[in-house]
Nucleic acid binder design. Structure first.
Lengths: 219, 219
DNA sequence: TAATGTGAACTTCTTCACAGCC
DNA sequence: GGCTGTGAAGAAGTTCACATTA
């Protein structure tokens, strides 16, 4: 197959496949079928095969997929077969927690610097990441160049997010993960991904209301 | 229109419309067109109108939508025209940050209790939320009943997440927001929403790779 | 003129179903 | 028998375009 246009939902699932493959590997398995991989994630076997087929032929008929082999391929596809230097803007509660999050480095993302606009924080170490000192926003451009940073995390209040995004884009950052609860306007060549935690809860709230109205769809 | 089945993507956007309406309201506006609302979020005007039409007729031809009126309707649709009591399991770095997050209460979600399995944390206040004392997991069921809790946040390590989910479901929780980087298996009547921050970065990494291969699609 | 609501057309995504291989 | 890869069919979601209302 090897399509040139790939559905965005398929790329999202690719990350989930990788995560699940790592779990399976920890459990001692060496191969996995599309059926088993799909079951673990609530997807059909056909969906799994189709998604992978967008990128090449990685399976072995009668056998399934070799876990190590497929993990390597997915990392290559996602571009995480190397380490990315990232930076974080906003050393509040959430930013501090994100800075300490081990899951990023496990997946090949290395935090090199943290920024904040609060003069009382500047010059101090990030709580729980002693090795990183909080810097003023004015230092962003320099850091981007120095460490070839292409990805940044925004964890500032909504009111400040657009300004920070502008700074990051100007400094040469190519992708932004936005935790501020507001939409960002950026040039089309800049990738943006957003996480709004209140929005997630609202989705759950809606689903609960739905279930109450039309309950128990079995199948 | 008032369809009985509503596309999941439409529901997701509904939350974003509400967020944007609140921003507009703060800016002093009283009405907004589908065009303007769409532009702010990177959507077409038709998309906005179609999404809203799934739920009823809220607009005024020639005028647009009344911001207060539409906000109220969306809150009613999402079920956030009331306060939800929520609880949080996992008082690590991320859990602590989430507990302190003001965005939840702003949107009608009230945190009533925090749980952790670490005996050294139990009995202590949540850092930066002095009013809440960390409780052992065994207290979950009691709290769910006492406060009529229907939604819970999981922010424990991946290895513990499934066990915690089982506990929550058994206690009567109806929806779970999962921050652990693993898929959860729950009964079909339980709603699950997941946030995996490393997955978000991987999506950005992929997009950057894509852009390098086939750059500058203008249009 | 400005803007909504919506059927119809279109595009995108998912599932089916089966040839082919181990 | 078990399992992949994929064209074809089907389902879902988005955009168009226009009648309609203020």
């Amino acid at each position: 197959m090897k399509a040139d246009h790939i559905p965005a939902p398929a790329v999202k699932r690719l990350s989930l496949y990788l995560r699940e493959l790592e779990n399976l590997q920890r459990g001692g398995r060496t191969t996995v079928s599309s059926r088993r991989l799909g079951d673990a994630l609530g997807l059909t076997d056909a969906q799994v095969r189709k998604d992978l087929a967008y990128f090449g032929q990685f399976g072995h008929p009668g056998i399934g997929y070799d876990i190590t082999e497929l993990s390597t391929e997915i990392r290559r596809i996602l571009g995480t077969d190397r380490t990315w230097n990232i930076l974080l803007v906003g050393a509040g509660n959430l930013g501090t927690a994100l800075a300490a999050y081990r899951g990023f480095s496990k997946r090949g993302f290395h935090l090199v610097a943290v920024f904040d606009s609060d003069p009382r924080k500047i010059g101090r170490p990030v709580p729980s990441v002693e090795s990183i000192t909080i810097q003023p926003l004015g230092e962003i451009a320099k850091t981007v160049k120095q460490y070839d940073v292409r990805l940044a995390i925004i964890s500032v209040p909504a009111e400040a997010a657009q300004q920070v995004a502008d700074l990051l884009v100007e400094a040469g950052v190519r992708g932004v993960l936005n935790f501020a609860p507001t939409a960002l306007t950026v040039p089309s060549e800049i990738a943006v991904s957003a996480v709004d935690m209140a929005v997630q809860l609202e989705q759950l709230s809606f689903q609960l209301g739905m279930m109450q109205r039309l309950p128990a769809r079995s199948g």
